[in-house]
Amino acid sequence: MKTYFVQQDSIVRKIWGNADTVMFIFAGAAAEFALNKAVDWLYFTGKLPKDPLGRLFSTVNYAKVIVFAEEKLAIQAIEQMNHIHQKVEEKRGYHIPDWAYRDVLFMLIDYSIRAYESLERKLTSAEKEEAFSVFNRVGKLMQVPGLPKSFEAWEIQRKQQLQENFAYSDFTKDLFLQYKKHLGFFRYWLVLEAQILL
């Protein structure tokens, strides 16, 4: 019997199994990535400014693999993410801040909930807790410290990190310009993403 990282009847699968919802998550993530104080890490390899939409879709695709794959494959995907980050850290000479990892996890929790509620219906407290638990488990497997223990604790920490870890910078300005520059390819990406999901 197959074991999945996320149960087949999970609300998280419903959220990430809908192309429109994923596009909403993507839109929120794109804006938030640009404002994060750790966005310089995304510029370090030079890949983000060259293909910002492609890089963000890559992040979304990793999340989808984790949500829909068997547990063994999902854990392998998480380990691969760890390996990629470690290589970047080695090249740059120091570690990505723990709070930057938490920000990305928190973003996925937040926009998963808000996108679904914007397009479908309000989630129950149990469903919100489930969305939190799935991505919090990803964080634990990535060995990210300082993760909250409940959805309620996450809400408090999320607000705090939004106040502390986000600011408009020269990287923000440049990334929004890159978004505008690459927006002509956006329809192509939307079609491609929809095909992947269906």
Score class of each variant (00 low, 15 high):
6 V>R: 02
6 V>H: 04
7 Q>A: 15
8 Q>V: 07
10 S>W: 06
13 R>S: 05
25 I>Q: 01
28 G>M: 00
28 G>S: 00
34 A>H: 03
37 K>L: 12
38 A>G: 07
39 V>I: 08
40 D>T: 11
40 D>N: 12
41 W>Y: 15
43 Y>H: 04
47 K>G: 08
47 K>V: 09
51 D>I: 05
51 D>A: 07
55 R>Y: 08
56 L>W: 10
56 L>H: 08
56 L>Q: 13
57 F>P: 10
58 S>A: 14
59 T>M: 14
60 V>A: 06
61 N>M: 13
66 I>F: 02
69 A>E: 05
70 E>T: 02
72 K>M: 13
73 L>K: 15
75 I>K: 13
77 A>F: 01
78 I>C: 00
85 H>K: 04
86 Q>C: 06
88 V>I: 15
89 E>S: 04
91 K>R: 11
94 Y>Q: 11
101 Y>E: 12
103 D>V: 08
103 D>C: 09
105 L>I: 14
106 F>Q: 08
108 L>I: 06
114 R>K: 15
119 L>P: 00
121 R>Y: 08
124 T>Y: 01
130 E>P: 03
131 A>C: 13
132 F>P: 08
133 S>L: 01
133 S>G: 03
137 R>I: 00
139 G>D: 04
139 G>N: 04
141 L>M: 09
143 Q>A: 13
145 P>G: 02
145 P>A: 00
148 P>K: 05
150 S>Y: 07
151 F>S: 05
152 E>L: 06
157 Q>E: 15
157 Q>I: 07
159 K>Q: 07
160 Q>D: 02
161 Q>H: 13
163 Q>N: 01
164 E>T: 10
164 E>D: 13
166 F>I: 01
168 Y>G: 02
172 T>C: 09
180 K>E: 07
180 K>F: 11
180 K>T: 10
182 H>R: 06
183 L>F: 14
184 G>L: 11
185 F>Q: 13
189 W>I: 04
189 W>G: 00
190 L>S: 12
195 Q>L: 13
197 L>P: 05
197 L>W: 08
198 L>T: 07
198 L>Q: 08
